[in-house]
Design a binder for these strands. Structure first.
Lengths: 142, 142
DNA sequence: GTCGAAGTGGGGATAAGTGGGGAGTTTGGT
DNA sequence: ACCAAACTCCCCACTTATCCCCACTTCGAC
């Protein structure tokens, strides 16, 4: 269960410290890949594997499905936390998310998202204004 | 589990270094053959055998199936990694994929694809804007 | 204030990618 | 049958990147 928001810095080698609270659930390994809205998604290994099976099972004869498959697997990286609880963000993924030195690490219950601070600011500001209506729309789900 | 995208160079002898992360899963031997969309496919030996059975079982009376069968088996090469973790790409397969000096090695979860860099660029540029929808589709699978 | 845990930063050992030399085999021609 | 050319495969060497480890700093708790 990943909860909370943390601001951490990348070092010169592109390493990002994972919040200590998250580490035990990610100790088996993680998969980092592109997320929605230009963030990065970090999945615990077990969660990724169920996801990967579904993607792998897609028809090979459908060109769209082939392309989808390629992007999912080619842009994903599997890693393990280093002894300090950090992961390396490869340059391609940093570019995709616009992350330079600072990053926001966000718990999303079953997985973790990583954001460029400015982008995170914009989105959460937008949500605050629209908060009432969004909440109203989604309240029925509870 | 093959994940990620790597740019490697062929040497003058047509050898290609397999990313170190992939080697343990390919140590038993590999089969290199023509892939879809003018790339090359590299299968671990065990995965190839199950694939070969399926292709073998295709109807011999269907002309398309016969032709597919020929393409798969006639152009396939079985190899083992050399002591440096490299494989040789035979000239016919290089010509098929348009590979000269550089190549992109792509993890596809259960197997590996090898691309000419320009061709890979084109394909990924085509879906670059679709990146968000890919992530969306991925999210829906969770 | 002190202690401990967490975040941050860098040095050095180790492995990976790349390139080339050379022994042993095969191939094809004379 | 012999030789020469081509090929394969193993080994060595160099450069670069990766990872592990150690050390400093900051922050919160007691």
């Amino acid at each position: 269960m990943f909860l909370g928001r943390f601001s951490h810095n990348l070092d010169a080698k592109g390493r990002l410290a994972i919040p200590a609270k998250f580490r035990s659930e990610l100790a088996e390994g993680v998969v980092v890949t592109r997320g929605i809205d230009r963030c990065l998604s970090v999945y615990p290994l077990a969660a990724w594997q169920t996801l990967a099976e579904k993607v792998s099972a897609l028809s090979i004869s459908d060109p769209d499905a082939r392309q989808f498959k390629r992007m999912v697997f080619a842009e994903a990286m599997d890693e393990t936390l280093d002894t300090q609880g950090r992961i390396v963000l490869p340059p391609e993924l940093r570019r995709y998310a616009g992350i330079d030195r600072e990053a926001v690490v966000v718990g999303m219950n079953t997985y973790v998202e990583i954001w460029e601070p400015g982008r995170w600011e914009n989105l959460s500001a937008a949500v605050e204004d629209a908060g009432a209506s969004i909440a109203q729309r989604l309240a029925d789900l509870i």
